[in-house]
Write a protein that binds this DNA or RNA. Structure first.
Lengths: 246, 246
DNA sequence: GCAAAAGTGTTGGAAATACACCCATGT
DNA sequence: ACATGGGTGTATTTCCAACACTTTTGC
């Protein structure tokens, strides 16, 4: 670009001040975060729901959400909301999708960014003091408030996909787990049955499990060995995956 | 839930009117859509960029974006912006990610929802009357305005992943294409070289290409056969994919 | 000793990879 | 005739799926 062209360009360019007027109130929209919080307990995949606080949806369940503050990073808002609702920090959180139909909220325009998080129900005993907050089997979730059913369905599908490509599942298990625990988890998330021997083979071949040389306690049958996931080794891998398949 | 409990709940519930006050201006945020528009031409993957119209970024390239209107569905906004910038409708568009760092826009808080679109450069001769709009080789894209480099990188990665799982690539090709065209496309997107025979085998085995019994014209060598993609057959498939692999 | 789940190997088929030659066209 | 890329087949390897018996523990 020549100097003359550059100058011509600058002439057409807007100053920051000019842009600011476009961002004035009339063009602003309320923005919220909704968290789909998955847990795993009693060999079932669970999701944390709260009673809707809106009369229109009285009695219905809804996701945990809140408005994003004007001076708050989007990701920070997600962590704040998770912390507020569950008391938890330092957990897996991932943005999934943004829902922005004009009429999705009865009180006005609210665009919502959905985050998905996976927490270990046993390990993080959540303050469910408020009995409005409840773990639900994902199998039986239906008829949520707002468009939360759609959001939930999207997140569950995404979880099912991503749990196969990344070691997310371990965020749902205790630090020490048996291979049976791990398989139960995958079977619950993916809603399939797997061959036990092939499942073990797969994970042992990956070579990402650390044998703790400990055994399950209090099992009403032969106790299994306990393992933990080798996150460090996994981080170093990062394979380049190529395989057209659809 | 008993009737008494239900009543107690309703007492605590908020009316829509009460919620509305939370959505008042002080809690609103400007929302934009940015489109990462991929094209394919001269066997290279391209992306459509425009000169930033902001003085601060004078001379830098940026994605095509615009504010979302308060009474406009988010997806509609994406289609509108694509239409405005390229004159195109009826193309592939997919939401990718939402970027919401407080300081990402110098003129104030703007959260942006990114969409990715794939268009056929040959087929849709875009009105690039405005010479501020330009196709760039993705290989050489760097130093974009705002956080657009990060957005672009995210979209390219997502494209590389999704193009292997879904037949998106055909949106970048003319309706009739040779297997060489198809392979060039995949090699350009994934930045790898593939074996020609195995590539053909893979696609023929999928059985989703319709042989048009036509030949390339004006090839400076033996002309190849032309095919089109069998979208109908693909739609009917929708396989359940299970395979843990990370 | 019995119930219940842990642990363990082999085999056959499918899919991915590696690889080399002849063919049709334009110049 | 020759340069260019189109079109084809086979051998090898790798991965996945199917499948059954022995072991350990609690009761």
């Amino acid at each position: 670009m020549s100097a003359a062209e550059k100058k011509a360009l600058e002439k057409k360019s807007k100053s920051i001040h000019a842009i600011q007027s476009e961002l004035e109130n009339t063009n602003r929209i309320a923005l919220s975060v909704d968290c789909v919080i998955f847990g795993f307990d009693e060999n079932k995949l669970k999701v944390l729901l709260i009673r809707s606080d809106l009369k229109k949806y009285s009695g219905k369940w809804s996701l945990l959400g809140d408005l994003v503050f004007p001076k708050e990073d989007l990701d920070d808002a997600a962590y704040r909301i998770l912390k507020q609702r569950t008391g938890l920090s330092d957990v897996y959180l991932e943005q999934v999708h943004t829902f922005g139909a004009v009429d999705r909220h009865p009180a006005g325009r609210v665009v919502t960014v959905t985050y998905c998080s996976l927490i270990n129900v046993q390990h993080h005993k959540i303050n469910i003091l408020d009995n409005e907050l409840h773990w639900h089997d994902v199998q039986t979730v239906k008829d949520l408030a707002f468009d939360h059913q759609q959001i939930f369905d999207t997140c569950l599908k995404q979880l099912q996909k991503r749990v196969q490509e990344h070691p997310l599942g371990f965020n749902l298990l205790p630090k020490k787990f048996s291979l049976r625990d791990l398989q139960n988890l995958y079977e619950a998330i993916l809603d399939v049955k797997m061959d036990r021997r092939n499942f073990r083979k797969k994970f042992f071949t990956m070579d990402l499990l650390i044998d703790l040389n400990e055994m399950e306690q209090d099992a009403p049958h032969r106790p299994g060995k306990l393992y933990k996931f080798n996150f460090e080794k996994y981080e170093k891998k990062q394979k380049k995956w190529v395989g057209i398949d659809f």
